[in-house]
Amino acid sequence: MADRPTSESPQSGGSGPRSPQDPKPTAKRRTILKWLGGAVGAAGLAKAMEPLTSFTRDITLDEFLQKHYQELSPDELETVLRRLEADAKRDYGADVRIDDAPPIPGVQFGYALNLSICNGCRKCADACHQENNHDRDTNNSYIRVFEMTNGSLDFEQGDPTYTHATPAPGKYYMPVQCQQCDNPPCVSVCPVEATWKEPDGVVVVDYDWCIGCRYCEAACPYHARRFNWKSPTIPAEEINPDQGYLSNRIRPRGVMEKCTFCLHRTRRGRLPACAEACPTGARVFGDLADPDSPIRYVLANKRVFVLKEELGTQPRFFYFFDA
């Protein structure tokens, strides 16, 4: 690396006076050389920037000028949704339906997880992978399941990379995903308001507004956010066609994404894919505002805790032991 001028600057010149450059006979040759140098430089620059042509071809003017989600009129949103559907057809060969389910008035989503019966099968993580159209190459999922050692809540003793049959003796299992904090550090740090908390408590990202600085990923204490380091690859036949603008539509390259409690499902009265896939009933999802909901029962009757309570993030994701 050329860090400093010292490394290559001539040292031999000494501090003696140097005559100004005015040798007349070589002036013409000098000019020619200068123009030649300029031309070589310009050609070099053009060549260096060549890969950009494919980048700019991918971005249409409509995409470039698209407004923030919260500023789109219903008509504009409709246009955007149809364009995104056409993009999915063009780029992935899939017929998808993208819409935008609004939050249900009065509903406050919350999640609880029973650590006594979770058996570490990772069906939740797989269901998330399928439902949310994650990149197949990286086997991405919003859920990481940690195999924990009995007697410790310390993640340093945990291992998310286990491959053996579960449950293993002396172990318990701790799935971690977005905690949908009521005081979310990821939202405060975003420089462009591309991520915010919806009225029903879900923290969402406008994938078409995010600039990809990844400050939110640094701020999140729960490793809940994922970045699209490349365009996701998914075979057309594996794409989940039931998509939401703020949730599981196929994300563009270079932007952040995260768990949305499957809002395209949950805002229509269905369970998140992870809760539906859980074979043990460890996952309890529901409306914190409804006194008769199962999650309210858990909060009232179980000894629940949240992760990293000392950070003041106020998670909406609760853990409890049953036995």
């Binding site: 971005i59 923030h68 591309a194 995010c210 600039i211 990809g212 600085c213 270079g254 932007v255 952040m256």
Partner: peptide
């Protein structure tokens, strides 16, 4: 930045 084209945001 993942999306420098969106710098105007």
């Amino acid at each position: 930045l993942g999306r420098p084209d969106r710098f105007w945001h």
